[in-house]
Amino acid sequence: MHSYYSFVTGPLAWIAFIVFICGSIWRFNSLWQLTKKKDSAVFEYMDRKFALRSIAHWLIPFGSRSMQLNPAMTVATFLFHICLFITPIFVFGHVMLWKENFNISWFALPNMAADVMTFIVIGSCIFFLWRRIKLPHVKYLTTPLDFIILMIVAAPFMTGFWAYHQFPGFVSMTIIHIVSGEIMLMAIPFTKLFHMFLFPFTRGYIGSEFGGVRMAKDW
Protein backbone atom coordinates (compact mmCIF):
# COMPACT_ATOMS: atom_id res chain seq x y z
CA MET A 1 0.00 0.00 0.00
CA HIS A 2 2.79 2.31 0.88
CA SER A 3 4.51 1.92 -2.47
CA TYR A 4 1.24 2.75 -4.25
CA TYR A 5 0.95 5.80 -2.10
CA SER A 6 4.42 7.02 -2.85
CA PHE A 7 3.89 6.38 -6.56
CA VAL A 8 0.66 8.37 -6.79
CA THR A 9 1.96 11.21 -4.66
CA GLY A 10 5.36 11.16 -6.33
CA PRO A 11 5.90 10.45 -10.02
CA LEU A 12 2.22 10.33 -10.94
CA ALA A 13 1.60 13.70 -9.34
CA TRP A 14 4.45 15.20 -11.33
CA ILE A 15 3.16 13.63 -14.51
CA ALA A 16 -0.32 14.95 -13.82
CA PHE A 17 0.89 18.50 -13.33
CA ILE A 18 3.14 18.35 -16.35
CA VAL A 19 0.39 16.93 -18.57
CA PHE A 20 -2.02 19.56 -17.30
CA ILE A 21 0.34 22.48 -17.84
CA CYS A 22 1.98 21.39 -21.07
CA GLY A 23 -1.28 20.05 -22.48
CA SER A 24 -3.05 23.31 -21.78
CA ILE A 25 -0.26 25.34 -23.33
CA TRP A 26 -0.27 23.08 -26.36
CA ARG A 27 -4.04 23.24 -26.85
CA PHE A 28 -4.12 26.92 -26.31
CA ASN A 29 -1.24 27.54 -28.65
CA SER A 30 -2.65 25.40 -31.43
CA LEU A 31 -5.93 27.30 -31.29
CA TRP A 32 -4.08 30.58 -31.23
CA GLN A 33 -2.02 29.66 -34.28
CA LEU A 34 -5.11 28.46 -36.10
CA THR A 35 -6.87 31.72 -35.33
CA LYS A 36 -3.91 33.69 -36.63
CA LYS A 37 -3.80 31.67 -39.80
CA LYS A 38 -7.48 31.26 -40.58
CA ASP A 39 -9.54 33.69 -38.52
CA SER A 40 -7.28 36.68 -38.28
CA ALA A 41 -10.35 38.92 -38.42
CA VAL A 42 -10.98 37.85 -34.83
CA PHE A 43 -7.99 39.93 -33.73
CA GLU A 44 -9.22 42.78 -35.86
CA TYR A 45 -12.53 42.96 -34.01
CA MET A 46 -11.34 42.04 -30.51
CA ASP A 47 -11.77 45.06 -28.34
CA ARG A 48 -10.51 45.08 -24.80
CA LYS A 49 -13.17 47.36 -23.42
CA PHE A 50 -16.14 45.52 -24.89
CA ALA A 51 -14.63 42.11 -24.18
CA LEU A 52 -14.17 42.94 -20.51
CA ARG A 53 -17.60 44.51 -20.34
CA SER A 54 -19.20 41.33 -21.57
CA ILE A 55 -17.06 39.03 -19.41
CA ALA A 56 -17.89 41.11 -16.34
CA HIS A 57 -21.61 40.82 -16.95
CA TRP A 58 -21.35 37.09 -17.26
CA LEU A 59 -19.19 36.70 -14.15
CA ILE A 60 -21.61 38.57 -11.94
CA PRO A 61 -24.38 36.29 -10.65
CA PHE A 62 -27.64 37.15 -12.42
CA GLY A 63 -25.79 39.68 -14.54
CA SER A 64 -27.42 38.40 -17.73
CA ARG A 65 -31.02 37.76 -18.70
CA SER A 66 -30.13 34.18 -19.39
CA MET A 67 -29.06 33.72 -15.78
CA GLN A 68 -32.22 35.39 -14.55
CA LEU A 69 -34.34 32.98 -16.56
CA ASN A 70 -32.52 29.98 -15.08
CA PRO A 71 -32.15 30.86 -11.39
CA ALA A 72 -31.47 27.34 -10.11
CA MET A 73 -28.80 26.76 -12.70
CA THR A 74 -27.25 30.14 -11.97
CA VAL A 75 -27.00 29.50 -8.25
CA ALA A 76 -25.68 25.99 -8.84
CA THR A 77 -23.03 26.99 -11.38
CA PHE A 78 -21.71 29.88 -9.35
CA LEU A 79 -21.47 27.96 -6.10
CA PHE A 80 -20.10 24.95 -7.94
CA HIS A 81 -17.29 26.82 -9.67
CA ILE A 82 -16.32 28.77 -6.58
CA CYS A 83 -16.14 25.66 -4.42
CA LEU A 84 -14.47 23.66 -7.15
CA PHE A 85 -11.53 26.06 -7.16
CA ILE A 86 -11.35 27.10 -3.54
CA THR A 87 -11.75 23.75 -1.82
CA PRO A 88 -8.77 21.87 -3.25
CA ILE A 89 -6.45 24.81 -2.73
CA PHE A 90 -7.42 25.62 0.84
CA VAL A 91 -8.53 22.34 2.31
CA PHE A 92 -6.42 21.55 5.39
CA GLY A 93 -4.96 18.27 4.11
CA HIS A 94 -3.70 19.88 0.89
CA VAL A 95 -2.22 22.86 2.68
CA MET A 96 -0.33 20.44 4.89
CA LEU A 97 1.02 18.62 1.85
CA TRP A 98 2.44 21.82 0.43
CA LYS A 99 3.93 22.65 3.79
CA GLU A 100 5.56 19.23 4.13
CA ASN A 101 6.85 18.96 0.60
CA PHE A 102 7.76 22.51 -0.36
CA ASN A 103 7.67 24.29 2.94
CA ILE A 104 5.18 26.87 1.74
CA SER A 105 1.91 27.37 3.48
CA TRP A 106 -1.20 29.47 3.43
CA PHE A 107 -4.59 29.85 5.00
CA ALA A 108 -6.48 26.60 5.50
CA LEU A 109 -10.25 26.21 5.54
CA PRO A 110 -11.93 25.18 8.78
CA ASN A 111 -13.13 21.58 8.51
CA MET A 112 -16.76 22.50 8.61
CA ALA A 113 -16.36 24.88 5.70
CA ALA A 114 -14.46 22.34 3.66
CA ASP A 115 -17.19 19.80 4.25
CA VAL A 116 -19.93 22.18 3.26
CA MET A 117 -18.08 23.20 0.12
CA THR A 118 -17.47 19.60 -0.79
CA PHE A 119 -21.16 18.93 -0.44
CA ILE A 120 -21.92 21.88 -2.64
CA VAL A 121 -19.71 20.50 -5.39
CA ILE A 122 -21.23 17.04 -5.12
CA GLY A 123 -24.73 18.45 -4.85
CA SER A 124 -24.24 20.61 -7.95
CA CYS A 125 -22.94 17.61 -9.85
CA ILE A 126 -26.10 15.75 -8.91
CA PHE A 127 -28.12 18.73 -10.09
CA PHE A 128 -26.24 18.76 -13.40
CA LEU A 129 -26.83 15.04 -13.69
CA TRP A 130 -30.52 15.55 -13.04
CA ARG A 131 -30.68 18.18 -15.76
CA ARG A 132 -28.99 15.84 -18.21
CA ILE A 133 -31.43 13.05 -17.48
CA LYS A 134 -34.64 14.94 -16.89
CA LEU A 135 -34.73 18.08 -19.01
CA PRO A 136 -35.53 17.06 -22.59
CA HIS A 137 -33.54 19.88 -24.21
CA VAL A 138 -30.44 19.01 -22.16
CA LYS A 139 -30.92 15.28 -22.55
CA TYR A 140 -31.05 15.65 -26.30
CA LEU A 141 -27.60 17.25 -26.29
CA THR A 142 -26.01 14.92 -23.76
CA THR A 143 -23.42 12.37 -24.85
CA PRO A 144 -21.85 9.54 -22.81
CA LEU A 145 -18.73 11.66 -22.52
CA ASP A 146 -20.71 14.30 -20.66
CA PHE A 147 -21.49 11.80 -17.92
CA ILE A 148 -17.87 10.71 -17.75
CA ILE A 149 -16.73 14.30 -17.36
CA LEU A 150 -19.25 14.81 -14.59
CA MET A 151 -17.85 11.73 -12.86
CA ILE A 152 -14.29 12.92 -13.31
CA VAL A 153 -15.18 16.17 -11.57
CA ALA A 154 -17.25 14.68 -8.76
CA ALA A 155 -14.92 11.80 -7.94
CA PRO A 156 -12.10 13.70 -6.19
CA PHE A 157 -14.63 15.37 -3.92
CA MET A 158 -16.53 12.23 -3.02
CA THR A 159 -13.36 10.25 -2.36
CA GLY A 160 -11.73 13.14 -0.54
CA PHE A 161 -14.66 13.42 1.82
CA TRP A 162 -14.53 9.70 2.46
CA ALA A 163 -10.82 9.64 3.11
CA TYR A 164 -10.76 12.69 5.29
CA HIS A 165 -13.47 11.43 7.56
CA GLN A 166 -11.75 8.06 7.79
CA PHE A 167 -14.74 5.98 6.76
CA PRO A 168 -14.02 2.27 6.34
CA GLY A 169 -11.33 1.60 3.76
CA PHE A 170 -10.08 5.15 3.90
CA VAL A 171 -6.49 4.15 3.21
CA SER A 172 -7.27 2.81 -0.23
CA MET A 173 -9.77 5.60 -0.64
CA THR A 174 -6.97 8.10 -0.12
CA ILE A 175 -5.08 6.60 -3.00
CA ILE A 176 -8.19 6.59 -5.18
CA HIS A 177 -8.75 10.18 -4.18
CA ILE A 178 -5.30 11.20 -5.26
CA VAL A 179 -5.57 9.35 -8.55
CA SER A 180 -8.98 10.83 -9.31
CA GLY A 181 -7.63 14.32 -8.70
CA GLU A 182 -4.77 13.60 -11.05
CA ILE A 183 -7.13 12.26 -13.69
CA MET A 184 -9.14 15.43 -13.49
CA LEU A 185 -6.06 17.59 -13.92
CA MET A 186 -4.89 15.59 -16.89
CA ALA A 187 -8.34 15.63 -18.47
CA ILE A 188 -8.59 19.40 -18.52
CA PRO A 189 -6.58 20.12 -21.66
CA PHE A 190 -8.16 17.32 -23.67
CA THR A 191 -11.84 17.58 -22.82
CA LYS A 192 -14.58 20.15 -22.52
CA LEU A 193 -13.16 21.00 -19.11
CA PHE A 194 -10.87 23.25 -21.11
CA HIS A 195 -13.80 25.66 -21.32
CA MET A 196 -12.43 27.43 -18.26
CA PHE A 197 -9.55 28.74 -20.35
CA LEU A 198 -11.64 29.44 -23.43
CA PHE A 199 -14.43 31.32 -21.71
CA PRO A 200 -12.67 34.71 -21.68
CA PHE A 201 -11.97 34.40 -25.40
CA THR A 202 -15.33 33.21 -26.68
CA ARG A 203 -17.22 35.60 -24.44
CA GLY A 204 -14.73 38.37 -25.13
CA TYR A 205 -15.07 37.92 -28.87
CA ILE A 206 -18.85 37.97 -29.00
CA GLY A 207 -18.75 40.89 -26.55
CA SER A 208 -16.45 42.75 -28.92
CA GLU A 209 -18.64 42.01 -31.91
CA PHE A 210 -21.76 43.09 -30.09
CA GLY A 211 -20.17 46.11 -28.47
CA GLY A 212 -17.89 47.36 -31.23
CA VAL A 213 -19.75 46.51 -34.43
CA ARG A 214 -23.34 45.89 -33.44
CA MET A 215 -23.39 48.47 -30.67
CA ALA A 216 -25.62 46.26 -28.60
CA LYS A 217 -25.48 44.46 -25.28
CA ASP A 218 -24.86 40.74 -25.20
CA TRP A 219 -26.13 39.81 -21.75
Binding site: L31, K38, D39, V42, T143, D146, K192, H195, T202
Partner: peptide, 13 residues
Protein backbone atom coordinates in the same frame (compact mmCIF):
# COMPACT_ATOMS: atom_id res chain seq x y z
CA UNK B 1 -10.69 27.90 -38.64
CA UNK B 2 -10.48 28.21 -34.90
CA UNK B 3 -13.85 29.89 -34.50
CA UNK B 4 -15.81 26.96 -35.83
CA UNK B 5 -13.64 24.49 -33.94
CA UNK B 6 -14.01 26.34 -30.67
CA UNK B 7 -17.76 26.84 -31.15
CA UNK B 8 -18.32 23.16 -31.75
CA UNK B 9 -15.80 21.83 -29.21
CA UNK B 10 -16.49 24.21 -26.34
CA UNK B 11 -20.24 23.71 -26.26
CA UNK B 12 -20.96 22.13 -22.90
CA UNK B 13 -24.31 20.70 -23.94
Amino acid sequence: GARLKVYVDTCLH
